[in-house]
Design a protein around this nucleic acid. Structure first.
Lengths: 260, 260
DNA sequence: CGACCTGTTGAGCAGCCTCAACATAAGTGG
DNA sequence: CCACTTATGTTGAGGCTGCTCAACAGGTCG
C-alpha cells in the first residue's frame, strides 16, 4: 500500500513516454492498470478492460446529460467534445478529449452524467462499465490511486481554463489553446506543430468564451504575423515559443509574489 | 469493499444532515471518516485527524504556490480564498471555501501546490499531513472513496464556474454567485438568506471575471429592484427565487436537448 | 447541380472596463 | 479619544474589446 501511495505521488506523465505506440494509444487505460511497484501494467487486467471496445461516428453521443452513470471511457483514437447546458439552451463546451484521455469521472459523485459527450470524428474507445471498474478496484488497489491522480490533474486543467476565461483576452485565449493542444499531442507522440483540428471554429470559440467570428479574426491575424499557417482545419504552428509567450503559458516556474 | 463502493455512489450531502452541529462543523473531515457500512464515522480516526488543529488569521497563507504538497486542509470555521497566478502578475481567484470544505486535493498529482490559499478571516482548520493521510488510507479503504467523491464533486463545481465565465453576463454571474453561497451556507445549517460576505468586492469580481466596479453597480441595481438588502458586507437575500431564476440555476433537472 | 454546412470578412453597436473622484469604514499611533 | 492613514466601497464619464448581424466564399454531399 505504501508503494501504491508512492506511485500516486511520483508518477508523472512519464507513464506514457517510452511505451510502444500501441501501449501508448491505450494510455488512459494503461495508466489505470499500472501496478504499485512501478513495473509493467498487469496484462490480464489490461486485456480485460481493453477488450470492451466501441466505435462512435462523428456526432454520436458517448453519454448524455442526466442519464445514469454506467461507464467511464478511455479514448483510443479520435476525439470527443464534452459540454454542459443552461436552462435557456445556452451551451458551454467544457473540453476536447483526445487519445489516451479518460471521460466520465465527474459523474462518480452525482451518479449521473452532468455533461454530454459527443464524438468529433470517428472515435474508438474502451468503455469501462461501472460494475467492471468496481471489480477491478476490488482486485487492484493501485487503480484507485491512478484514478485519484487523473482526477487531480483534471482539476488543475479546469483551473487553467478558469484562469483563461476569467483573465485572458481573445488573442491570449487562442494562443493558449493552440499551445495546449500542441503539448497534448506531443505527449501522445503525435506531431505537435502540424495537425488537423477536429473541432469547428464555433466549438473552439464556445470553449474559449469568445464568438466564432473572433476565432476567425484572431487566427487570420496570427497567420498574417507568421505565427501559424492555416488551411481550413489543418494548422501548422510556425512559432510555438512566441505563441506560448503570447498565451502566458511559458513553462511557468514556481513563483512567490504577493496577493492583493 | 462492495459496500464501500455503494457508499461512494449513494451518499450525497446527506452525510451532513441530522448531525450534531459539532459533527457538522467538521463535516469535511467527518465525510472522510465514514465507514463502508454507512454507519457512524470511526471516532478514533476522527479524533486522530481532528486533533491536528491550526488557526490562521486574516491574510495568513494556508499554503503557497509551488511549495511541496504536504497537507490537505479541512475548514472547521472561517473562510479561505484560493487563487492562481499568471506570469505577468494577473491573478484569478478560483474559489472561496467555508466550513466543512476540503482544500489541497488538486495538489495530489503534481506533488506541489498549484494555487495559493489565504484566510479571509480568522479561520480554524484541521491540517491533515500527507503522511497521516497515507496511514489513514492504508487502514481504512473507504476513505479513498470519500476522497474520490469529494473530488468528483469539485470537478462539477469547477465546470459550473466555467459555464458562468464562458456564457453568463454580469447580472447572471452575481445572481449565480449569491445563490450558490446561500445554498452552501444552508447545507451547513447556517442562515441562507442573511449573512456576512467575508470577501471583498474586488475578490468577488476577480472570481466572477468582472471588474470590482461592475460588482458594485450590479449589487446596487439588485438592491434598487428589491432583490437584496445590502449594508457594506452584510447581505440579505429578499427574493432568492428570483435571484436563482436570474442566474439560471433554478434546480435544473435533467434535460434532453440537441447540441449544435 | 443545388442545398447545406462551415468559415471568413465587414460594419455598427453595446456591455463592460478603465480611470478618476469621492465616500465610508477600519486600523494606527500619539 | 482623536487625527491621521489606509483599505474598501460607490458612482460617473468615456473608450475599447469583442459581440451581433449580415453578406458571401469555399467545400461537401445528396
Amino acid at each position: 500500500m505504501r508503494s501504491a501511495m508512492r506511485l500516486l505521488t511520483e508518477l508523472g506523465d512519464s507513464a506514457c513516454r517510452g511505451d510502444t505506440p500501441i501501449a501508448c494509444k491505450d494510455c488512459g487505460v494503461y495508466q489505470l492498470c499500472l501496478p504499485p511497484d512501478g513495473g509493467e501494467a498487469d496484462a490480464s487486467i489490461l486485456d480485460q478492460i481493453t477488450k470492451n471496445r466501441r466505435v462512435f461516428k462523428r456526432g454520436d453521443y458517448l453519454f448524455r446529460l442526466g442519464r445514469p452513470f454506467h461507464s467511464i471511457y478511455a479514448i483510443r483514437s479520435g476525439s470527443v467534445k464534452t459540454y454542459i447546458w443552461m436552462d435557456d439552451g445556452r451551451v458551454q463546451v467544457t473540453g476536447f478529449h483526445i487519445a489516451g484521455e479518460l471521460l466520465g469521472l465527474n459523474a462518480i459523485d452525482a451518479k449521473s452524467y452532468h455533461c454530454e459527450a459527443r464524438a468529433l470524428e470517428t472515435t474508438s474507445v474502451c468503455e469501462i462499465p461501472f460494475d467492471q471498474l468496481e471489480a477491478l478496484v476490488r482486485g487492484n488497489l493501485s487503480i484507485q490511486y491512478q484514478i485519484l491522480r487523473i482526477m487531480s490533474r483534471e482539476l488543475l486543467q479546469n483551473q487553467e481554463l478558469i484562469l483563461l476565461l476569467g483573465k485572458k483576452n481573445a488573442e491570449e485565449r487562442l494562443a493558449t489553446y493552440l499551445i495546449g493542444l500542441s503539448r497534448r499531442l506531443e505527449r501522445r507522440h503525435l506531431s505537435p506543430c502540424e495537425f488537423n483540428l477536429s473541432m469547428s471554429r464555433g466549438d473552439i470559440g464556445n470553449y474559449l468564451g469568445i464568438a466564432e467570428e473572433t476565432v476567425c479574426r484572431v487566427l487570420s491575424r496570427f497567420e498574417e504575423e507568421g505565427l501559424i499557417a492555416l488551411r481550413r482545419r489543418y494548422i501548422r504552428l510556425r512559432a510555438p515559443e512566441r505563441l506560448a509567450q503570447l498565451g502566458g503559458v511559458a513553462e511557468c516556474a514556481a513563483r512567490t509574489r504577493q496577493a492583493g
